[in-house]
Nucleic acid binder design. Sequence first.
DNA 1: AAGGGGTTCGAAATCGTTTTCGATACAATC
DNA 2: GATTGTATCGAAAACGATTTCGAACCCCTT
Lengths: 339, 339
Amino acid sequence: MKVTTLKDIANELGISVATVSKALKDYPDVNKGTKEKVLQTARKLNYSPNQLAVNLRTKQTKTIGVIIPTTVHHFFSKVIDGIIEEAEKKGYLVIILQSSEKLFLEKLQVNLLLDKRVDGILMSLSNKTNEFVHLKKVLSRNIPLVLFDKTEPSISCSKVRIDDKKAAYEAVSYLISKGHKKISHFRGDLNPKISNDRFEGYKEALEDHGITYDPSLVYLCNNNTDFEDGYNNAKKLIHENPEVDSIFTITDLVAIGAIKYFNENNIKIPDDVAVFGFSNWFMSSVVSPTLTTVHQPAHQMGVVATEILLDEIELNKENKPCLHKEIILPTKLIFRESC
Amino acid sequence: MKVTTLKDIANELGISVATVSKALKDYPDVNKGTKEKVLQTARKLNYSPNQLAVNLRTKQTKTIGVIIPTTVHHFFSKVIDGIIEEAEKKGYLVIILQSSEKLFLEKLQVNLLLDKRVDGILMSLSNKTNEFVHLKKVLSRNIPLVLFDKTEPSISCSKVRIDDKKAAYEAVSYLISKGHKKISHFRGDLNPKISNDRFEGYKEALEDHGITYDPSLVYLCNNNTDFEDGYNNAKKLIHENPEVDSIFTITDLVAIGAIKYFNENNIKIPDDVAVFGFSNWFMSSVVSPTLTTVHQPAHQMGVVATEILLDEIELNKENKPCLHKEIILPTKLIFRESC
DNA sequence: AAGGGGTTCGAAATCGTTTTCGATACAATC
DNA sequence: GATTGTATCGAAAACGATTTCGAACCCCTT
């Protein structure tokens, strides 16, 4: 019933709390005999240290915080999987918070984690995040911070991401190489760097291949209902630009919304319109036609970001300076039926 | 840089730590003037209480632990979404751990959470969990525990789940009402209650409608690669029982694996074989043909389980006894093209 | 002048560890 | 016998907050 403390063990054996503590941590200045007795009664009383007290004393919580836009997302759930896996391996626990794409929540959650005295923070910024005082606060407190996926160049901390521009460039170049000329882009929200990068990659690929960029072929997805965004934009696209021959979408979910519209309206994929997605969700190999897309190493991103964070935490503990890294993970085009 | 403590505020104003603490918590026995001064300097020095110290003193962490088999799963990610949402609303943080369907990890993680002094624990048991000492340990420590989805009758704590047997019964009865007679079942792992319940529902529905249960029509999915399990079992099924006219699967993912096999081999759904899934994943409305399935209220399950847990934590704090509830959330058949 | 009542404050204990540093005891050395 | 060395232990401070309880003070009353 009652949780046993060092004091209980000390009382049981008639020795001091200090000795018990040292015995359990195998200090050299405690007799072998008493060490054994302490170990025995500790086991007998089912002792396990109160982490709260340990944390208060050592000023470490062996806990990291994660703030992401949402957990209900194949990409993020795989990242989380990687984070938890890596953290657990090194003995750290993970607190997860969702910003739900809201800046004020993101700020609030940063404060929660700081108050909780987490040893480090992992973040993927919300689509609405356009100021960064809350991130600077973390850095000024000397708490390691690693940004992944949705990052921000102006903040000097480690980052793990993909080269969105290059990946988009490659995808659109592939469409062009297959003879497509009227290439639409269903782009993401205007604020986050990744959707701007992908948009830039799209534009640059067009221009490098002698196709003039046509703004009327670009459609915005910002309702946070990716699937319906894709569906509705596909409908608009077909009415406004019937001669379109392909689409490059910001994400697979948008692509799948478009595919659904095309399937329902007897528009053949890829013959009438080719579709190129982004992320390589599990679903993209299941949908019909299967979706050509860009593979994003989600699990690896979680693992690598956590590795870097834990390294920085260790360096921090020893008061060593740490250089911030920016890791660019490789992407890969996955060719399937939709192109 | 340095984090401010109560002491800093006290020194700044030349008063005691005790008064500062009481001023910040609006105790009646502190002068209005000093209250204001304390509030001002607290704001000026950007004070926020060290939760570690607060927790140690108050013996509450305002943190709950969650142990689930995996996060990379549409169902669980929606449950997590509900949990985090509800917890955050009430000012609680959430630590998430994955058992990866391994009993020894589940046990270890329970201990981690107990050491961390979480205020309560939310669990969905792994498929391999067939002993429960670790759960009893939680209860004996008087820490509220709520099981959801994968629960265990022999443990006396609150539970939130669906009526798996009834849902399966309804699904299979629907197949029968549509004239199907050779109904296969792709069942889940042998251990967990939910897959046995669904199996029982399947069997009972057959028997109640005068169809004799045929064990050779039941296939096991236990490779934890649901999708491929479905694909491979579909292949075996067609070779061993070519006259089959429908399948009821343990989960949508299995169903989608089967659908993929049927699509590839020109077996028409639902004309040759009808497919009935379970869970109503997002994907099931996207796949072709769209999947008839059982809707499971995942988000709600997370919210309700958390509500109950937090209620029990409150009661616990006041040393009031609490009755354990068992909530059965309603399911719903979703009719689409595959049946 | 004594007592009662109200206001305002702070000393100190407490939560459960960790860790420093001094104390003690005993053996060995010269 | 004084000194040094070694082994073993524990008192106490510290981490940063919360909370009890008594002290101090002033104002009124009688």
